[in-house]
Nucleic acid binder design. Structure first.
Lengths: 158, 158
DNA sequence: CTTGCTGCAAAAGTTTTGCACACGT
DNA sequence: ACGTGTGCAAAACTTTTGCAGCAAG
């Protein structure tokens, strides 16, 4: 599985994320455990979209043994804390991405080569706001995924 | 699970879909079976987003016994024929929607009440085309999902 | 007739959960 | 100490697949 990612803009804030998570946990009466710290580190190290299974294997390779159950449980907290967002590429497996401290992005996906290219979606915010307003909704977030055939896929097919 | 849907524009073509499917199947050397016809009928009757499980139960209720395996297999063909499209709301379960003969739509989702409101996305096509062109991709389709808190949910929370 | 199709049940894959023990605060 | 968290293994759920008999072209 090939994966290309264009990062969006400059890295803005990488440092306080841990603090944000701790504050979130405290507010919920939860604990900041070694495992949660390790998982957060692993997530912060990821630039691109990732899967729970990937985290599990990479952490295992790094001798940071954490069970899958804990990874799933922690990802749920990270989602709630809005540190991570779900990126739904296919229905089979959940894909996640670090969302905090980044501008909103969409994903350009080539199903044939599994390439995922990120692109900024600032221009869509007005559209989102307008549609929410039209229906009396309070905007929370959005996802924009474009499917297309990559140059590489066209070449492969001939 | 409550579900509201605003249909987009006028119904344009509902009749030739069956013919389109038959042509598609023939081209692939596949057969137009009773079960496939029943499933297509059930799909055409759906205005909103649906799940495989829903089709299964509704067909069962209507005494149109078709196995789940066949439903999944047929949905795959309908996707390939571009008669149906996937609408990914969550990663747990696949959601589908009739796509042929309809203008492209996005979905405004309230996670708290499970409301799904459809809205037209014609205005996004230029954006899609531009982003594809920028990366040398050939556009195939796109998904636009907005998450927001519905008036009903706000009321319920207080 | 030939080839593909269906139903069933089992398999596969991801995510969740129950429970006994361990750890943060 | 108390209340949460963790790991493990089993469960839960959706989707896929193998196979024997059935049906469409």
């Amino acid at each position: 599985m090939q994966q290309t990612t264009t990062t969006t803009g400059d890295e803005q804030l990488i440092l306080p994320v841990c603090a944000i998570f701790r504050r979130f946990l405290k507010k919920q009466g939860l604990k900041f455990t070694t495992e949660r710290a390790l998982i957060l580190d692993a997530v912060l190290a990821k630039e691109a979209v990732f899967e729970a299974e990937q985290l599990f294997e990479e952490m295992r390779a790094a001798e940071h043994r954490v069970s899958k159950a804990t990874i799933y449980r922690t990802l749920k907290h990270l989602l709630e804390a809005k540190i991570v967002k779900e990126v739904l590429i296919d229905s089979r497996q959940a894909h996640y991405q670090l969302s905090i401290g980044r501008k909103p992005t969409g994903h350009l996906v080539c199903p044939e080569t599994d390439q995922i290219i990120e692109f900024p979606t600032d221009e869509l915010q007005p559209v989102v706001d307008r549609i929410c307003k039209e229906h009396g909704f309070e905007p929370v977030g959005f996802r924009f995924i474009i499917f297309g055939v990559s140059p590489e896929a066209r070449e492969a097919d001939g």
